[in-house]
Design a protein around this nucleic acid. Structure first.
Lengths: 135, 135
DNA sequence: CCATACTATATCCGTTACGGATATACTGTC
DNA sequence: GACAGTATATCCGTAACGGATATAGTATGG
C-alpha cells in the first residue's frame, strides 16, 4: 500500500531529465549497467542516443544530476571497482561518481514514456506525423 | 532556398509549448480551426487533450503565447466574427484574441513530433514501455 | 439580490531549469 | 611541452514556469 511520493507530481519531465533517465535505464540489466554510469558517460550516451540533437554542458549535466538525486529519481552507487580489472588504468578513474535509476525513477520514466506514446499516437491520428513508423 | 530561421534551434520544445502547438494544430483544416483559437480555449483544449495531466495557469498560458509570438511559432489572426453568428452572445466575446499556427510553427511541430516518435520507438526497443500501443 | 463560479486576458514576481564560462586536474598524443 | 579528451564542480545570467492578483463581463443558484 505504501507508495512514497506520487510519481505523477514530477510529470511532465523536462527533455534533459528524460534523456538522463533513458541513458541510465539503457537496456540490459546485467552487471554492466546495474553498476550505474558516471555523469560524463551519461552526457555522452545522451548525445549519441539523440544523434547530437541534445547536448549538455557541465552546468546542465551536474546541476540536473544534483536535482535528480534530491528528488529521488536516481541514486549514487558506491564504486565497487577493483574486482574486475586488476590493472585497468583508464577503467578505474577515481574521479568518477556513479549513478543508477532508483525504483522510483524507473516508475516515473515509465509513466512519462507512456504519456509521450499517447502524444505521439494522437499526433499520428491527426496526421501531423508524415513519415512512417521510424526504425 | 530561403529558409528563415532554422527550426531545429527551437528544439527540444518544452512540454507546455508542444501542447499549445498541438492544440492549435488540432485536426481539421476547415474554417473552424483555420480561424485559430483564443488563449483560454487553448488552455482548455490542452487540459482535455491530456486528461487533466497538463494544466496551465494564466501566467504560463499568456506568457508562453507571448514568447511563441515573438519566436514566430504562432501568429495572431484578426477576429473576423459577425459573419457567422448574428445574435451569438457568448460566441462573440470581444475580449478574445485568436491565434493560429504559423507555417514555421507547423514545421517545428513536425520536427519535434518526429523526434519524440524516435524516443518512444527507442524506449519500446529497450522494453521500457510495458503496455501495448495505446489507442 | 447578492454570492459564487466561469470566461477571458494581463501583469507581477518568486522559483526552477538550463546553458555557458571558468576552474581544476589527470591522461594520452603529436 | 602544447593540446585534446576525460571528469567533476561552481558561478551566474537568462528563460520558463506557476501562482497570486487584478479586472470585468456573464451566468447561476440559493
Amino acid at each position: 500500500m505504501k507508495r512514497g511520493p506520487d510519481p505523477r507530481e514530477l510529470l511532465p519531465l523536462t527533455p534533459v531529465v528524460l534523456h538522463i533517465l533513458l541513458a541510465l535505464a539503457d537496456g540490459r540489466r546485467d552487471q554492466e549497467d546495474a553498476a550505474g554510469r558516471h555523469g560524463y558517460a551519461v552526457a555522452q550516451e545522451v548525445e549519441a542516443m539523440t544523434e547530437g540533437q541534445i547536448r549538455m554542458g557541465p552546468g546542465t549535466l551536474y546541476g540536473s544530476i544534483q536535482r535528480m538525486l534530491t528528488s529521488g529519481l536516481i541514486e549514487e552507487v558506491a564504486r565497487t571497482k577493483g574486482a574486475r580489472s586488476p590493472a585497468a588504468t583508464s577503467d578505474d578513474d577515481e574521479r568518477r561518481r556513479y549513478y543508477r535509476l532508483s525504483a522510483f525513477g524507473r516508475r516515473v520514466l515509465q509513466l512519462e514514456l507512456a504519456r509521450l506514446a499517447r502524444v505521439v499516437a494522437a499526433a499520428r491520428a491527426k496526421q501531423l506525423l508524415t513519415g512512417p513508423e521510424p526504425a
